[in-house]
């Protein structure tokens, strides 16, 4: 109960923060826009083609500046930066070697099976969040997937719903649900081991953990697989290792595109979440 109170207080606190954050950059951009139009109508004589290319350039400029409006606030940048280095080191020197060894021992079909099983069993998370967003087609898709994969798909180890019936997955989490109803992302927050996140999505983790049969915080529910918090962490460690073993090399390849790792990962995360929420 105490925890619930705490949760609501934090939620309230964050959304208060959001409203002030959003007002700021918008004020900024309107300022820039006016600056642009004035420079356009400057007295310099311009030829028709010049004007054409100018208009054309501005079109791209506004298209890309549009999404920069929602610049995320980052009061914890110092902490975030060091946590990014920590996560990066953890990934490179612990998770990746372990995943590689794991991949060498366990054949891929088994790893895929486990990945399918984990995905399938988290159906309650997707169901509730789709329900909260009133996405009824998604609910019917997800339910169909769950029924098919849990039965024909041998308790979820196989994924006939994707491979034979072409029913799409609709991953939704509580962070996306909050975003769907207009909650801003809040400040950026890099979580230890979990990687980039923000205030909204971090809060979203708690309801999702509550819904997930793979997490048991207080050992009170019968239907959950782990029986206590320590076991939940163990299950999660296996899940992450297994997932990473199927995506070896992706992070390294991504990292090469970065001039500076922390802002790069932050930007990618926020862009990705924005597009997931928009879907």
């Amino acid at each position: 109960m105490k925890f619930l109170h705490f949760y609501f207080i934090i939620t309230f606190f964050i959304f208060q923060g959001c409203s002030t954050q959003q007002a700021d950059p918008q004020a900024n951009t309107s300022h820039i826009e006016t600056a642009e139009t004035t420079s356009d109508t400057s007295t310099k004589p311009v030829t028709a083609t010049d004007k054409n290319t100018e208009a054309f350039d501005n079109e791209f400029e506004t298209e890309f500046a549009e999404s920069e409006k929602t610049e995320v606030s980052d009061p914890l940048s110092g902490y975030n930066r060091s946590m990014t280095s920590f996560n990066d080191a953890f990934f490179t020197y612990a998770l990746n070697p372990v995943s590689k060894a794991y991949a060498a021992i366990i054949p891929q079909p088994l790893r895929l099976g486990l990945s399918n099983f984990i995905h399938n069993i988290k159906y309650p998370v997707r169901l509730v969040n789709n329900l909260l967003q009133l996405k009824f087609q998604n609910i019917s898709d997800e339910t169909e997937r769950f029924i098919v994969n849990s039965t024909v798909g041998l308790a979820g180890f196989m994924d006939p719903a994707t491979h034979y019936m072409n029913i799409p997955v609709h991953d939704e989490d509580f962070g996306q649900t909050l975003g769907h109803y207009g909650a801003g992302s809040g400040f950026h927050l890099v979580l230890p081991f979990l990687g980039p996140s923000n205030a909204r999505d971090t809060l979203g983790l708690f309801p999702d953990m509550y819904l997930s049969p793979l997490v048991n915080l207080k050992s009170y529910d019968q239907y959950r697989i782990p029986s206590n918090f320590a076991e939940s962490i163990a299950v999660y460690a296996v899940e992450v290792t297994n997932k990473n073993s199927l995506r070896l090399g992706e992070y390294e390849s991504l990292k090469k595109d970065a001039l500076d790792l922390y802002p790069f990962l932050k930007d990618i995360y926020e862009q990705k979440r924005a597009s997931e929420i928009a879907e």
């Binding site: 890309f64 999404s67 920069e68 595109d257 500076d260 802002p263 990618i268 862009q271 990705k272 597009s275």
Partner: peptide
């Protein structure tokens, strides 16, 4: 393109992440 009426790629979005937007941010930061 205005002159030729031909179409060109100016950006690619991978899983919702715009490659050019990402570089743009990085460059302006840099």
């Amino acid at each position: 393109k205005r002159k030729s009426n031909q179409w060109y790629i100016y950006d690619v979005r991978l899983v919702g992440v715009s490659i050019i937007q990402t570089y743009r941010k990085q460059f302006s930061e840099f």
